[in-house]
C-alpha cells in the first residue's frame, strides 16, 4: 500500500561530476544590505516590448531587473515592505507585468501582488490575501491557489487574475488535514494535487472545486514537498523531496523521489530515488523542478542537479567565493538556472 519498490539508478562517483555542465551566463549583485531570500524570472513589458526579467527578493524589498545590451543587469523597479518580511516570490505562469510575493515571519501572513501603474511610472502593491497561510502556488491560466487555516476550518482558494487587474475567487473543498504544498498535474487539465501534514496526497477538480481523492503515500518520509506531478497511462507520477530524509543510507543520500500512484485505487509504489553521488554529504534544504530537471540546495551549501529521466545527479555546484548557496530556481521564461547566495549575489547559469 505504501512505497515498497524503489529502484536505484547507478550512482556516479563524485569525481565524474563538475559544474562544467553548467555555463555561467551572467551575475547580478543586489546591494540592498538585507538578507537575500529568493529569485524568480518574469515577463515584463518595458517600453512596449515584453522582456524576460529577473526578480530578486530581500527581506524588506523586491526588485525587478532588466538585462542590458552590455550584459549587465539594471534595477528597474523596487517594492518596499515596512513591517512584514518577504518569505518567497510566487511566480504566476502566463502573467506579464505582475509578480506575487508571500510575506510573513515563520509562516505566510500575507500574499501581495506587485505591479506598476499603467504608464509604468510607479510601483504599486495590492494585498490579495491575509491569514495563517500554509501553502501557495501560481498556476497556469493566470491563477493562484492558497490554503489558510483558522482554528476550526481550512480554506482553499483559487484566484484568477483577469485582464485589467481585477481578480475572481473560487473555493475548493478543503480536506480535514492541513495542506502543505500544491502541484498542478501535467497531462490532466483541471487536476490539482496537494500534499498534507498527515502524509496524504489529495486531488481536486479545479473546475468544479470537488475534492476527488485522498491517498496515503506511506510514513517513510514526513513532510514531503511535491515539486512536480504528471498523469500518464492512467497513473499519477509525483516528484517529492524529503527534508527529513536520513542523511546517509546504504544507497547514498536520497534527495528526491519519484512515486507512481493509481488514483482509482489509491495504491502507490516508489519508482526512483534520486541520490547524491558517492562521497557527497548533505540533505535537501530547498529546490525546484522544471521539465526533467531537479535542482536542490543541500545542507552542505552545494547545489546538485539531477536529470530525472537518466535517474542520476549530473552536476554539482560547490559554494562560490566561500559563500554557501541558499536558494536555487529554474527560470520560468527560458532555460536558465538561477542560483542565489544570502549576501545578494545571483548567478545565472
Amino acid at each position: 500500500h505504501s512505497i515498497e519498490q524503489t529502484e536505484l539508478a547507478d550512482v556516479p562517483a563524485c569525481d565524474s561530476l563538475n559544474p562544467g555542465n553548467l555555463q555561467l551566463v551572467s551575475k547580478l549583485k543586489n546591494h540592498s544590505g538585507s538578507c537575500s531570500v529568493d529569485v524568480s524570472a518574469v515577463w515584463w513589458e518595458i517600453a512596449g516590448v515584453k522582456e524576460p526579467c529577473i526578480v530578486t527578493a530581500c527581506e524588506y524589498a523586491v526588485s525587478l531587473w532588466k538585462l542590458l545590451d552590455t550584459g549587465q543587469w539594471e534595477k528597474r523597479y523596487s517594492w518596499h515592505f515596512a513591517e512584514v518580511p518577504v518569505l518567497q516570490i510566487v511566480p504566476v505562469p502566463d502573467v506579464c507585468n505582475l509578480v506575487c510575493v508571500a510575506l510573513g515571519n515563520l509562516e505566510i501572513r500575507e500574499i501581495r501582488a506587485l505591479l506598476c501603474s499603467s504608464d509604468g511610472g510607479c510601483e504599486k502593491q495590492v494585498l490579495l490575501r491575509t491569514g495563517n497561510i500554509h501553502a501557495v502556488l501560481g498556476l497556469t491560466q493566470r491563477r493562484l491557489v492558497s490554503s489558510s487555516r483558522t482554528l476550526c476550518d481550512q480554506q482553499v482558494e483559487v484566484m484568477t487574475f483577469a485582464e485589467g487587474g481585477s481578480e475572481e475567487k473560487q473555493f475548493l473543498m478543503p480536506p480535514e488535514e492541513t495542506v502543505l504544498t500544491f502541484a498542478e498535474v501535467q497531462g490532466t487539465q483541471e487536476a490539482l494535487l496537494g500534499t498534507t501534514i498527515m502524509n496524504n496526497i489529495v486531488i481536486w477538480n479545479l473546475k468544479t472545486g470537488q475534492l476527488l481523492k485522498k491517498m496515503h503515500i506511506g510514513d517513510s518520509y514526513q513532510a514531503s514537498v511535491c515539486h512536480k506531478a504528471y498523469s500518464e497511462m492512467g497513473l499519477l507520477f509525483v516528484v517529492l523531496s524529503h527534508p527529513c530524509a536520513k542523511e546517509k543510507e546504504p544507497s547514498g543520500s536520497p534527495v528526491f523521489q519519484l512515486i507512481a500512484i493509481n488514483p482509482k485505487t489509491a495504491l502507490s509504489v516508489g519508482v526512483m530515488l534520486y541520490c547524491l553521488p558517492q562521497g557527497q554529504a548533505g540533505r535537501f534544504l530547498e529546490g525546484d523542478v522544471k521539465d526533467n530537471f531537479a535542482a536542490a540546495v543541500l545542507t552542505s551549501g552545494t547545489i546538485a542537479i539531477w536529470d530525472l529521466l537518466l535517474g542520476h545527479c549530473t552536476a554539482l555546484l560547490p559554494p562560490i567565493s566561500d559563500q554557501n548557496w541558499s536558494f536555487v530556481k529554474w527560470s520560468g521564461t527560458d532555460s536558465h538556472l538561477l542560483a542565489g547566495q544570502k549576501d545578494g549575489n545571483i548567478f545565472v547559469y
Binding site: 477538480n205 468544479t208 498523469s231 497511462m233 497513473l235 499519477l236 493509481n262 482509482k264
Partner: peptide
C-alpha cells in the same frame, strides 16, 4: 512497477473520480 502492485488502472481516472465525488 507492475500493474499488480497498483490495482486496476483507468486512463479516464479524472473524469471517473469527478463523477463519483460529492459535488
Amino acid at each position: 512497477c507492475s500493474q499488480a502492485d497498483l490495482g486496476p488502472i483507468s486512463i479516464n481516472w479524472f473524469e471517473e473520480l469527478s463523477s463519483e465525488a460529492p459535488p
